[in-house]
Simulated assay, not measured.
Amino acid sequence: MRPQAPCGACRAVPSRPAWSTRCNPSNASPKPSPIGQLVARPNDMDLASREFDELAKLIHSLTGLVISVDKSYLIKHRLEPVAKRFGCDSFEAFLSVIRKSGGTRIHDAIIEAVTTKETSFFRDSWLFEALGQHVLPELAKRLDGTGTRRNRIRIWSAGCATGQEAYSLAMLVRELVDNQPQTRRLNEFSILASDISSDAIETARSGLYSATEIQRGISEGRLRRNLERAGTRWQFAGPLRELIQCRKLDLLRPPHDLGAFDLVLCRNVLIYFDQPSRQRVCSTVEKHLLPGSFFVLGSAESLYGCEHSFETIKHGRAVIYRKPAASR
């Protein structure tokens, strides 16, 4: 499904966001192409089938994305500017440079070009309602005498793009803390926001968003409580930015220092992977989840037949997976 475009009333960016549920596409569940919804346009670089095959194989090895031959025009559109930036006037020359370079600079440029950063705040609102009303309160019990005593609840937003999901989680955590001021503190929670894109992670780290981005999912009340004006943009307040650690991370090659988590969200990622890559990600998540902790996928995703021990929990429309408490 193509991501919904804002309605006419939302096209112009006002001096402050115009809050309208009717114009808010965050409740939709778009399934963008992993390299975006683009229209092919004429250019002076042809992409032969053997060149596409080699580039598709490289993209898969770098990102896990599976690019089918019917998306070759998108590869051509996205990678032609990268090829020209590296002084190449053909994809054959570009591939030659890639083979000879063996460095990360050209690989990073390819990753930035082919990964999508489509996201919004509180995307799939029913899921965040379930997290705020059921999952986070249950996790908070681990911090006191009603559950396993812990110093901190750790949450991982895996494949966070430009950070809207991580900040949505941070706002829910703040609301939980504000509702229990005598017993809860923000520093009892931490959120890891990770993505393979360096540019996306820098945006997430800054906490800076345009009025158009803010109006996609954030209510006026949450705006007043959590954000401040920063020129023509909005920035999340310091306490929420401090709650989030932003890190460039490849889900298929996770670092050894990830640690254990109480909640992992990995939404709209597996849908673009092949089965071996899906299994690797699911195994990584399962390994790093504490017993009794939660795993969330996108609304159009499932575990795709991956081997796992997760139980399925439903809260209304929200489907959440839980690692059994007896797991070791």
Rank of each mutant, 00 (worst) to 15 (best):
L249C: 11
A260D: 12
L243R: 07
D195E: 02
L47Y: 05
P181H: 12
R2W: 11
A260W: 10
E51H: 12
I191S: 03
I313P: 00
R280E: 03
S277E: 04
F189D: 06
G292S: 01
R241F: 09
V135D: 04
R105T: 10
A318F: 11
L176F: 08
C306P: 05
C282N: 09
T148L: 07
S168Q: 04
I75T: 11
H315K: 15
Y167M: 02
E311L: 14
L243S: 06
R216N: 10
L270S: 12
S68K: 11
F128G: 01
P324Q: 06
E286H: 09
R185N: 13
S197Y: 07
T183D: 12
R85W: 07
R41S: 14
L227V: 01
G221P: 04
D257A: 10
A170N: 01
G231F: 02
A193S: 11
L192K: 01
R205Q: 13
R184C: 14
C246K: 09
S72M: 11
I155M: 02
D257M: 07
L143G: 00
D257Y: 08
H60D: 09
L258I: 05
V66D: 08
R22G: 12
R123N: 01
A230Q: 14
R224D: 15
L47C: 07
Q275F: 05
G259R: 05
V114E: 05
S61M: 04
E138N: 10
E213G: 03
G132Y: 10
I67R: 03
E51W: 00
R154H: 10
R50L: 09
G36M: 02
R142P: 00
I191W: 04
S96Y: 12
M1K: 12
C282A: 11
L139K: 01
P291Y: 08
V264Q: 02
R216C: 12
E118V: 13
I320N: 03
L270Y: 06
R322F: 00
C88K: 13
A12G: 02
V97R: 12
S168K: 04
L38Q: 10
F121Q: 03
C10L: 15
T203C: 11
G102W: 10
L192E: 10
A318R: 06
L258T: 02
D44F: 05
L95E: 06
E175V: 01
T104I: 08
P239T: 08
E220K: 14
L186P: 06
R253F: 02
K248F: 04
E301H: 04
G163C: 05
S197I: 05
P291D: 00
R241V: 03
S309D: 12
P137H: 05
S194R: 01
R267A: 01
A18Q: 11
S190R: 09
A193E: 08
E188W: 06
H315V: 12
N24V: 10
P6N: 10
I35K: 00
P181G: 14
A166H: 09
P3H: 08
E54G: 01
C306S: 13
L223H: 13
W19H: 12
G217Q: 09
A109L: 06
A93W: 05
L55E: 04
L265Y: 01
S68C: 05
S26G: 15
V114S: 04
C7R: 13
R233F: 09
L62H: 03
P32W: 03
A230H: 09
S101F: 09
Q275E: 13
